[in-house]
Write a protein that binds this DNA or RNA. Structure first.
Lengths: 196, 196
DNA sequence: ACCTGAACACCGTTCAAGT
DNA sequence: ACCTGAACACCGTTCAAGT
């Protein structure tokens, strides 16, 4: 019968995995470093080696979230057809899916309470997601589906619309049975807003 | 020298006021019922008479936030000129101002961690804000500035765009010096998306 | 009705000491 | 380098008892 070794192996990763699980299942209020440590089987002080504070763990979680969101959007984009309208639909749906499946995490990603230390990294990550919208717009312009002009002039409003819609859907402000129709309306609105 | 009376008078209001102040000044993590009670000069158990739990206080704060946001949007709307474009600009600016001035509160309003008990009320409040967008669209249709169609088909995307832009600006995802230009671009985008 | 006082079961964080 | 054990100064919440 193997007894737990003194060194966990990869406590950092274990903390992040477990933290995200309870974040999704029981909400951010139920996230306790001590309980995490208990579940993983290490002492209450062990997490402090890997995260200077609870907030540092939350920031790491948020950063991971931005990475997954960006990957999801890129994959959806690349899997869609070439036409601008198809790509907008695919990216919007991917954003929505992420928001619904990771509502608490999305909250964390765009919340205001980050450590100044991590803030810079998080803002970068947020802007990297924003730059995906810019890339989408540039393609649309090449196809003639988007009016000419500086990328940000259209990219930012598009990003805002996608994000806003996803947040409203994930926060339950939208009735669940009108999310799908709302997404179609939002995509149509974006296409009109972009059109030459 | 008057000594503090046994009954506070309006402890509930005092708690809400103080809570919102520290929420804005020191962030949601620094909000402690015990510290609030200490600052106000009541015992640690006193708040429980007015709020069943800390979450109940946060929910009340969020509800108050929705009320103030709605009022702010209506006032901005009514103070603006009659033209649809002017009204959209006024409402967008009001939403942005609220978000920047009450970033932590806005976080709270649209966060996922509410009590099921308060959720219904909060969702109603959120939808009431959404109905303001619908009213705006209806006027726009009457003026011929907005294409015909069901209110929600345009109202929801407009709401999403305003909310998304405000959140991005308030969360610092947008560089501070591009917020003003971003707002103009967002308004222009909305007007295009609405146009017949 | 509203609040106090004291208690309970937790927290996050720190720091010497162990492996 | 990584973790434990014990301690510190807090929490939120409950409940009998006071006014």
């Amino acid at each position: 019968m193997r007894t737990r070794p003194y060194h966990h192996g990869d406590l950092r990763a274990a903390l992040l995995t477990r933290a995200e699980r309870t974040l999704g299942e029981k909400g951010p209020g139920a996230l306790s470093l001590r309980e995490l440590a208990r579940e993983i089987g290490v002492s209450p002080a062990a997490p402090s080696r890997h995260f200077r504070s609870k907030q540092a763990l939350l920031d790491a979680l948020a950063l991971e979230g931005f990475g997954r969101l960006a990957t999801g959007l890129i994959e959806a984009h690349d899997a869609a057809g070439d036409a601008f309208a198809e790509r907008v639909l695919a990216v919007t749906r991917a954003y929505l899916d992420f928001a619904v499946a990771n509502a608490a995490l999305l909250d964390l990603m765009y919340s205001v309470k980050h450590d100044p230390a991590a803030s810079e990294e998080l803002i970068d990550a947020g802007q990297r997601v924003g730059s995906l919208a810019a890339a989408l717009i540039r393609e649309g312009q090449r196809q003639g589906a988007v009016r000419e002009g500086p990328l940000e002039e259209i990219g930012l409003p598009v990003m805002a619309t996608l994000h806003g819609f996803a947040v409203l859907a994930a926060s339950g402000t939208l009735p669940a049975d009108s999310v799908e129709q709302g997404m179609r309306d939002t995509v149509a609105f974006v296409l009109r807003g972009c059109a030459p």
